[in-house]
Design a protein around this nucleic acid. Structure first.
Lengths: 142, 142
DNA sequence: CTAGGTGCAAAAGGTTTGCGGTTAA
DNA sequence: TTAACCGCAAACCTTTTGCACCTAG
């Protein structure tokens, strides 16, 4: 089971001006154990298993803090709830129009994107590439 | 003022199995007149100016139909309301972390992205690239 | 003629806020 | 010591739904 060192997480939080708390550690641990892309509500339910008193407001607070210190990505794919992803490697998300599943797709082909030249003055801090279409399973079924 | 030919819109709708209605024409016309990226609520308010009885439910219905026939993009940038964009040219969205404004950025540098190779079986129908950071104005102010 | 679309109003879903108490630094 | 964080519950904002009526094809 993955779990970031407490000291390391503490440092990352402190660097962005956040305090270290047991809730933030736990929410991050929950995320690190996921392959899917859970919503805040799903993180909340999993977090409660080991920390029954945690509240949904705190989960949002923790997720926001983790996003702001660059440990977690917020993924907005449709009009529904936002999803959270602890994979900070450069990758993109593929969302199937049929079944709604979200796939993390790692690739080396992002070089082209890395070299996108922005008009003067824009300062890039983050990019998110999301694709839609049919996943292999749904594509073969239809 | 931009306005798609009724016949042409009718055809696009019919091709995807939708009926032509005055509301769909009007919602599309409203979108074509925007440079910003209005939310459904904003589209609703602008649409009411010339069609006072249109309802918010109908606006959602029209937007969904237009998205499904490939005339409009739905843009999900954060946890707030979805935004709608009638620019179907290949471009990306830059959202400023400071002021929240959304910029359409056209570029020829998307070639790299066009050539992204998906793992076997995935069928791509749409891609969306969203960038975050600071816009020129906020970058120079901070 | 009738399946699909509309307007309305209520419900559902997702996120934020205010407050009194707690805690990391 | 104290600003930041917590849990709780209510409020808020966005989107969906159900229903009776209407209309494009």
């Amino acid at each position: 089971m993955q779990r970031m060192e407490t000291n390391q997480l503490n440092l990352r939080l402190a660097t962005s001006g956040f305090r270290f708390t047991a809730q933030r550690q736990h929410v991050y641990d929950v995320l690190l154990q996921t392959q899917d892309h859970p919503t805040a509500e799903e993180v909340f339910m999993r977090a409660k298993q080991n920390m029954p008193d945690i509240s949904i407001a705190t989960v949002y607070n923790c997720l926001d803090a983790l996003v702001k210190c660059g440990l977690v990505r917020q993924v907005n794919l449709d009009r529904g709830a936002a999803r959270y992803c602890p994979n900070m490697k450069d990758h993109f998300h593929f969302c199937c129009d049929e079944c709604g599943k979200v796939f993390d797709i790692d690739t080396k082909d992002l070089d082209g994107v890395s070299q996108i030249s922005l008009p003067g003055g824009f300062k890039l801090t983050q990019r998110e590439i999301s694709l839609r279409g049919l996943c292999p399973e749904c594509a073969s079924r239809l």
